[in-house]
Design a protein around this nucleic acid. Structure first.
Length: 885
DNA sequence: CGAACCTTTGAGTTA
DNA sequence: CAAAGGTTCG
């Protein structure tokens, strides 16, 4: 959660004190400066240090600010030392942001907060300290999803389970889900354990955990689950931490899952004086109602909601999942031996968007129950968005039933209305947005103040293509994590194999990368060998090369590989770890492999490898590097240049921009059909919260889009506008025509007209537009054949009659691609945009492009080049985007 | 063993 | 449509 990356005048009431120097700290004794800029609610949230506090902080209300000020307050009041404050966030980015702000606030007075970090990094850290107690060694490896799946595949094979019918990925998902809910193998409800592999799911989970211990490895879920197990089984260790953490702060509390909840609950309990059975604190420790509750949920048995609404004050949907009975007596109302610690959770139930990852909105809805005597403080003053945007967002989210209810206020001007624009298809949508961005740019806006937020990442491509053509700089935020990229994982696998010869997964990953002629057959026989003698793969390999079981070729290659590793391990003693990494990548032929690779991303991969080596410098040694890499490595930043940000709605949480474009508001895509199918009404509400998050990212302009046709799985289908558009308050919304060429709308389109019936916004399905759309969809189903034809049909349906359409008379004789609309306009735009300067490239030049790879120039038009790419085909690109190859 | 070709399946969000 | 998995042939 990163709050303002930029302070606007509107945020004056929320203004950050200047970095606190000595003077600032001297004054802190009187009215600390960090308190001065806070509004009364914020101040209450900062100053209420004792007992449990829940801060319900709506979007843009200064959540991060409250958290950091609170820490500053605790420290300056002398209530705790930095090492006695546990402060957890979800992302590294949020943790970094808080550290940064704290540093600014307190000067260098604080060396740093050792226990400020993500759930996973802190969990991992605690686990390493007590690794032996959970059958691990302190240098255990954190597995990524890839390793997990490969391990599970092996287990499936061992059990003779057909991995077609029972994919390893599915099992990985199930196990992950169980871990998210804090369930060890023995605690998984039998019914649930049986759903996989003809009843063998539970068994597989158990053997997976066993294998992890043998490999000295933990997966992400273990970082918390094993922590919980540690605390449960070793009360003395738990007590030690309970004692240490005098204050606990939790960011994004609405996103916590059951495991995180249990973990927090364990830690937030004051030290237990008498021998209180842990089961009194942790329901999961003994058979307890909480697990069955979750079990019912997953197995699809929805128990009708008991009427506990009056108790909790939560408006319950009456439908699962959130409406499931709460079993308060079982869960945590058990009288505690001591009052809960000073725990402060900050969150916003309206921004809970990680239900699919196991987050329990219930955690925040139920806070007052869990922590009796809790102070609940609402932050409702929004310092971010204009009136219209805030009104639209509030009205939308008001359609949700499961919420605590907040009313965001702003003192800002109304500003521009939220716009809704319909386009013919996703291409036109991208074109329209591209144009609007250029317009904003011309009006003096920085591209850094512009973001496009999509529901699903596949939507990004169209924008990227468009921006490349326009020469509009952009950056994709999120995307695959740095350490998830193949080349990084490969490099790490080499280092892991050096560091821990028992890491079979790592060895297996690189044994034939680059190709050494050690294929499946060889690996299989190594496996057999290893299993028979109960030794790691690497040792098996060492043994096997001494026999003649392998063909000479494979034997030689394997022998050489083993010799290399022996050499590297020896060098480890005398070389720095960064140098070693370079040597390894070099001598293994790995960098060579990519240098020879002619594909578009090869250059980028080599860069990533360099970046990896560079990042190693921050660590003491190889060991330390490997311990943290999987938890700490983040996406590459590079936010220096002025560029449009492109990301998913999920990764936009915590950010804000002056101008926010929200494309793809169509049924099926947003709200996502899959969420609806899987989660029903709760899913719809989560999607709506996502919409709310999207809107509230905008400071000054929020622009929504929907397209009538979209390519799904490669085929075009007709779509209908999202119901969320119907749920916007008409007063704050303006319907505009798509600018990306002749509009299709007019009297016949459902764009404008669906908002004619101004007062009927609440009853979505009654609007004329909705009905038309429904009818349209029904017809659209008839002929789903050739996409192009589909489009033409749709065009007629969309409401053109021949006279209205500027292109209809031209038909297909105009000499333009049939499915390209308004090519003249585009051409004109291109020419107009052309700088006129003669390109430094000439025909047939061989060039390289970051995204498309190698190609030849086939046409030059000012600074616009048409290039035939070897892989990507022919594309029109601005010359500054390519370099001579 | 591995490249080349063919078939199938799947595109939702992530620490 | 694209990636991933399977099959075939050199």
């Amino acid at each position: 959660m990163t709050e303002p990356n930029k302070l606007t005048p509107r945020e004056v009431p929320d203004h950050q004190p200047a970095a606190g120097g000595i003077a600032a700290r001297a004054r802190a004794a009187a009215t600390p400066q960090y308190l001065a800029g806070l509004n009364p609610e914020q101040r209450e949230a900062v100053e209420t240090l004792d007992g449990p506090v829940l801060v319900l902080a709506g979007a843009g209300t200064g959540k991060t600010r409250v958290l950091t000020c609170r820490i500053a307050h605790i420290l300056s009041q002398g209530r705790a030392r930095p090492g006695e404050i546990l402060s957890v966030t979800f992302t590294n980015k949020a943790a970094r942001e808080m550290k940064l702000r704290l540093g600014q606030m307190l000067g260098q007075a604080v060396e740093g907060m050792p226990w400020l970090g993500t759930f996973h990094s802190i969990g991992g850290r605690i686990l390493r300290t007590h690794a032996e107690l959970v059958q691990l060694k302190s240098n255990f490896t954190v597995l990524d999803v890839d390793d997990q799946v490969r391990l599970l595949k092996q287990l499936l094979a061992a059990e003779n389970i057909d991995d077609k019918r029972w994919p390893a990925r599915m099992l990985a998902g199930l196990i992950d889900g169980w871990k998210n809910r804090g369930l060890t193998p023995s605690q998984v409800p039998t019914g649930e354990a049986a759903v996989f592999g003809n009843g063998r799911g539970g068994k597989l989970y158990a053997s997976y955990q066993e294998r992890l211990k043998i490999l000295n490895a933990a997966d992400f879920g273990d970082l918390l689950l094993e922590n919980i197990r540690l605390f449960r089984e070793h009360a003395d260790v738990l007590r030690q931490y309970q004692h240490r953490f005098r204050f606990i702060l939790v960011d994004e509390y609405q996103d916590t899952n059951v495991a995180q909840y249990l973990w927090l609950r364990l830690l937030s309990q004051a030290p237990v004086k008498s021998a209180t059975p842990l089961s009194a604190i942790i329901p999961g420790a003994v058979p307890s109602p909480v697990i069955p509750e979750a079990a019912q949920r997953l197995s699809g048995i929805h128990t009708p909601s008991a009427d506990e609404n009056s108790e909790t004050g939560v408006m319950d949907s009456g439908l699962a999942p959130h409406g499931a009975p709460r079993n308060d007596e079982g869960r945590n109302v058990t009288p505690s031996p001591a009052a809960p610690k000073n725990i402060c959770c900050v969150g916003d139930d309206d921004q809970s968007i990680y239900g699919w990852r196991g987050a329990e909105v219930d955690n925040i809805l139920r806070f007052e129950h869990d922590f009796p005597g809790a102070n609940v403080i609402r932050l409702e003053r929004n310092y971010r968005s204009t009136g219209h945007i805030l009104a639209a967002a509030s009205h939308l989210i008001a359609h949700n039933e499961s919420r605590l209810g907040k009313t965001l206020r702003t003192e800002d001007v109304d500003g521009e209305k939220v716009t809704v624009t319909g386009s013919w298809d996703s291409e036109e949508e991208a074109r329209a947005i591209g144009e609007e961005i250029e317009e904003l740019q011309r009006a003096g806006n920085h591209l850094n103040d512009v973001a496009i937020l999509v529901r699903a990442s596949f939507q990004m491509r169209e924008f990227e293509d468009r921006f490349v053509t326009l020469g509009l700089p952009y950056r994709v935020i999120g995307g695959p994590r740095f350490y998830e990229r193949a080349e990084i994982r490969d490099a790490l696998a080499y280092l892991r194999t050096i560091n821990s010869p028992a890491d079979d997964l790592a060895f297996e990953r690189i044994v034939n990368v680059p190709k050494r002629g050690l294929g499946d057959a060889t690996v299989q026989m190594l496996h057999d060998h290893a299993r028979k003698r109960r030794i790691p793969l690497f040792e098996a390999a060492r043994a096997v090369v001494e026999t003649d079981e392998l063909k000479p070729k494979a034997r030689g290659a394997l022998r050489q590989l083993i010799a290399s590793f022996d050499r590297w391990r020896a060098q480890r003693e005398v070389t720095s770890h960064t140098e070693l990494a370079e040597i390894v990548l070099d001598e293994s032929g790995y960098t060579d492999m990519w240098q020879k690779d002619r594909s578009a991303d090869a250059a980028g991969r080599l860069d990533n490898l360099k970046e990896l080596v560079r990042s190693m410098e921050e660590f003491e040694n190889l060991q330390g590097f490997l311990e943290h890499i999987s938890l700490v490595m983040d996406r590459d930043g590079g936010a220096e240049d002025d560029a449009v940000s492109l990301m998913t709605l999920h990764s936009a949480k915590g950010l804000e921009f002056d101008n926010v474009f929200l494309p793809g508001w169509e049924e099926g895509l947003f709200p996502s059909q899959r969420t609806l199918d899987e989660q029903g009404r709760a899913g719809l509400e989560e999607e709506r919260r996502l919409a709310h998050v999207g809107l509230t990212r905008a400071r000054r302009r929020a622009k929504l889009y929907f397209a009538t046709n979209r390519r799904i799985h490669g085929t075009w289908s007709t779509t209908i506008p999202s119901r969320f558009l119907d749920e916007l308050p008409a007063h704050n919304v303006e319907i505009t025509e798509s600018k990306g060429g002749a509009g299709w709308g007019g009297a016949g389109g459902y764009g404008p007209s669906r908002f004619d019936n101004v007062e009927s916004f609440g009853s979505s399905y009654a609007t004329p537009g909705w009905q038309r759309a429904q009818a349209n969809r029904a017809r659209g189903r008839e002929g789903q054949g050739d996409g192009r034809q589909e489009k033409r049909q749709g065009q007629a349906r969309g409401g053109f009659n021949e006279d209205q359409s500027p292109f209809s008379s031209r038909g297909e004789t105009g000499g333009f691609a049939r499915n390209k609309r308004g090519p003249m306009v585009i051409e004109g735009e291109l020419i107009a945009k052309s700088t006129g300067t003669v390109s430094e490239f000439s025909l047939h030049d061989r060039v390289f492009h970051q995204k498309f790879g190698y190609g030849n120039v086939v046409k030059i038009d000012g600074n616009k080049l048409t290039i035939a790419f070897e892989k990507a085909g022919e594309k029109k690109v601005v010359d500054s985007f390519v370099q001579r190859a």
